[in-house]
Design a protein around this nucleic acid. Sequence first.
DNA 1: ATATAATATATCACACTGATATATAAGTCA
DNA 2: TGACTTATATATCAGTGTGATATATTATAT
Lengths: 187, 187
Amino acid sequence: MPKVNKTKYAILGVLDMRPCSGYDIKKFCDSGISHFWNENFGHIYPVLKELEKEGSITKAVEQGDGKPSRNVYSITQKGKEELTQWLLQPVEHSPARLELLLKLYFAKSIPAASMIEELERVKEKHAQRLETLLKMEKLFLGNETAKSDAGFPFWLSTLRYGIYDAEFRIKWCEETITNISAHQLGK
Amino acid sequence: MPKVNKTKYAILGVLDMRPCSGYDIKKFCDSGISHFWNENFGHIYPVLKELEKEGSITKAVEQGDGKPSRNVYSITQKGKEELTQWLLQPVEHSPARLELLLKLYFAKSIPAASMIEELERVKEKHAQRLETLLKMEKLFLGNETAKSDAGFPFWLSTLRYGIYDAEFRIKWCEETITNISAHQLGK
DNA sequence: ATATAATATATCACACTGATATATAAGTCA
DNA sequence: TGACTTATATATCAGTGTGATATATTATAT
């Protein structure tokens, strides 16, 4: 079974909320769902063309006097059905490729201090991420409109995932720094 | 800054332990480091050719009478230096693309039961993964040869990462199932 | 004896990333 | 006012990585 084009379904999902240009879709990915998803222009634009060609979305060109034209896409009935079918399928396995762990695995040939510094940097990065996510959660839990939406428990769970993920990584960085340091002293 | 070819460094790292054929490298990725790394033949073979061309590895053809030939590669001094340089660099940011969270985010248009079933399946998958990792850790901690190797704390930390990761995902699946179920009942 | 799994290399289509090119409009600040 | 920067908007390219498939031999199991 060949790999499924997930960009296709990400786009259908966004257009199912409201009509968007390619630029709008990119902005949404970089703000609303950036804690678990990413899209590039280099993939969005060609996929929009394909989706239009197969009738899953339709294009409307917006001409603001003199302004650069906007291609605004809307989802069709066919597109909605495709999205639903995908949502009902189990997720695909996605192979792990964790650069930090690969470096760690081969790290015995470089000075331990270098690896420890890198672990400190990574820990700091996740600490900042955690802070952001906790703020988002607080804002979200205080928003009565959001709370009454049928999507509420789903959206909240994506935030919770990010929070648990950041927490475990911080803990692991600390533990790993301690273990490497202890092993260095014992040599 | 264009994306770094990590397959290149994964191969150099494996060849720095011992000379290998492309097939051996694939086997190693699928056994020793499969809990955090993945490589495909479709990438290994062309990268081996490039590495040989640039003088980072050398090829020796093994001819066992009649048997299919094996191309056994060894790392050169240049290759060792390249590997070290890469190990000293900070890790690159890798964008998140979590299909399960994307589905969850758009899930309000499908029956909650479908999503809950998927979460149960995912939870079970991680529970099995956790079991495997804990067995590996036990074996590893009981191996006196491994314990005396300079790589010990590094290798152990890659296992610990996988264990924490599996644990948090199991916890998150359970919490998410509970929250979705509760929200369904309250409607 | 036959089927299946393991060894071994190679290639292809496609998914996805990150950089770059191009052009206009709007805001900043000296 | 002019110069600079940022935001809006679309498009394309080279390169990384995935998963499937083709091919051929050897070893093992039923």
